[in-house]
Design a protein around this nucleic acid. Structure first.
Length: 487
RNA sequence: GGCUCCAUCGUCUAAUGGUUAGGACACGGGCUUUUCAAGCCUGUAACGGGGGUUCGACUCCCCCUGGAGUCACCA
């Protein structure tokens, strides 16, 4: 069996699309499961759409999402870029000679031909075809040019492209996800493989690179399926064995259409900005269209690698269920080490990090879904906001009782030893023991205490809040509450 | 419009000829509880339609309908 080599081939035109992440994940799962290689190749053949810094950004995203590649460009800590792997360069703009060579080979074999048609002519031709409801495809005007004629015009410096001459017949292939697919060549256009600027198009570059880089499996979005005949025709022309193709279902927006910037967050960067964790994003996106288990939702990346199965990937598109992502993110927020969360939440906090904030983050994590929500969640621990004294009174008690209980608590807290302040459990034990000893009711004591400490009608338990605030600040807030009630 | 792909709760999905069609998110109810969150229990909710094949179809085949993708010197 040949080694599994998969590749993700983004074009550096901006940010990383969430669909790119999903396909990359599947590539990664498949290659790792088979002890193969996962390759990143940069497809920068469209000079007009290049965005400076996009390659670096892309690599950074792959890094932050923890799916390491084996070959391709790598970003060094100093910001420079190096390549690893024996099949480079992995950036298509550095492989122009190769594409040229193969394109010429096709022309010499009679499989491709130069075309001098202007874009204006092409546009008109298409319009006419649409008008009579025909398939839009090149009318092969330049195919009738003789070799000499073509050579003369090229030598005269006339702008031209190279098109493949699609043979008659049909292309059949077995998609690893969808099964048997057939396309009649009458539907396939004599597509351009070399542009007039000397750069190849995706069709050529991709086939050449996949062959030279010994790619075994090509995973790509479903939007590519109708161009697969072109890839296969090219393979056949070169007499190369084609890789296995698998077209993964599309990620859809709420409107059921291909996810676009208009309908939702398409960039992985945006998800991070909104406070989602890489683990949750991977779990979410990696199980969209593929489910390792009937009754589990949370999987580690290793579990996903183990259980991944191309033939079990769904063929229908999937709408992103953002509520489920939130839920999943919360699951990770609750299962991660507190120190880990503290480290990750730092960039999202407007308030400066200190001991109180660290403890508060640990307490509040079950109440937030995303890292961006911590700032608001943590603030009440740092600043006691103004509040209506009425909320200090428990529903089954009155103002006088609230004052009485808070006065008791003031004394109790003041008397608390350093050891009993060391943990939530000890604090809870101390206070509950006091309540029992004095024959009091939980609600009468705990409600006003909690509200006094947090300044909020809804909040964490008084024990947790006490622990976060510390003895001194807790005492102050209790005194504030008593004063408030007495006015 | 041509071609291609797709079709189970609102959403993500399980089921590979025989299940009371399972799980998850969301939503409703309950338990727990000083509140909220979490947790636990629980409820509502789906096989697009029509033909076949078969003793038996969510599962296989055909048609219809519906949805999507694609038809560039973009990937």
């Amino acid at each position: 069996m040949t080694a599994v080599r998969t590749r993700i081939a983004p074009s550096p035109t901006g940010k990383m699309h969430i669909g790119t992440l999903r396909t990359a994940l599947f590539d990664y799962f498949l290659s790792k499961q088979n002890n193969g290689q996962f390759i990143i190749r940069i497809e920068d053949t469209d000079q007009e759409r290049l965005v400076p810094g996009a390659v670096e950004n892309l690599l950074e995203m792959f890094h932050s999402v923890h799916i390491p590649h084996d070959e391709g460009p790598f970003l060094q800590p100093d910001g420079s870029m190096i390549e690893k792997g024996g099949y480079g360069p992995y950036v298509q703009s550095q492989r122009l000679d190769l594409y040229n060579k193969y394109a010429n080979e096709l022309v010499e074999k009679g499989c491709a031909y130069p075309c001098f048609c202007s874009t204006e002519r092409l546009d008109e031709m298409r319009k006419a075809q649409i008008a009579v409801k025909q398939t839009t495809k090149y009318d092969r005007k330049c195919l009738s040019l003789t070799a000499e004629e073509a050579r003369e015009r090229i030598e005269a410096g006339e702008s031209h492209v190279i098109r493949i001459k699609v043979p008659e017949g049909k292309t059949e292939f077995d998609d690893a996800i969808r099964g048997h697919v057939v396309f009649d060549h009458r539907e396939v256009d004599d597509c351009i493989i070399m542009k007039s600027d000397g750069f190849p198009t995706y069709y050529l570059a991709c086939v050449v690179d996949d062959y030279l880089m010994k790619i075994s499996h090509v995973l790509r979005g479903e939007e590519w399926i109708s161009s697969t005949p072109k890839s296969l025709i090219l393979c056949a022309m070169f007499e190369w064995e084609a890789p296995i193709f698998a077209h993964v279902p599309l990620l859809l927006g709420p409107d059921k259409k291909k996810l676009s910037k208009r309908t939702g967050d398409t960039a992985v960067e945006e998800y991070f900005v909104h406070g989602y964790l890489a683990e949750a994003l991977i779990n979410f996106v990696g199980t969209l269209g593929f489910n390792p288990s009937a009754d589990r939702e949370i999987f580690t990346i290793d579990e996903l690698i183990q259980s991944f199965d191309l033939s079990k990937v769904n063929s229908g598109g999937a709408i992103l269920n953002m509520e489920k992502l939130d839920w999943m993110n919360k699951q990770y927020l609750m299962s991660l080490q507190v120190e880990d969360i503290i480290r990750r939440v730092k960039p999202f906090l407007k308030v400066p990090m200190n001991d109180v904030v660290e403890r508060a983050v640990g307490i509040e994590r079950s109440r937030v879904a995303r890292l961006t929500e911590f700032d608001d969640a943590v603030k009440p621990y740092l600043f006691l906001a103004e509040y209506d004294p009425k909320i200090l009174v428990w529903k089954k008690a009155d103002v006088a009782d609230a004052i009485a209980q808070l006065t008791r608590m003031e004394l109790l807290v003041a008397a608390l030893s350093e050891e009993s302040c060391a943990s939530i459990a000890l604090l809870e034990a101390a206070i509950k023991e006091y309540i029992t000893r004095e024959g009091l009711q939980n609600g009468n004591v705990l409600w006003p205490l909690r509200v006094a400490l947090s300044g909020q009608e809804k909040s964490a338990t008084p024990f947790e809040t006490l622990w976060v605030l510390g003895k001194e600040e807790s005492l102050r807030r209790i005194q504030v509450a008593i004063a408030l009630l007495k006015t």
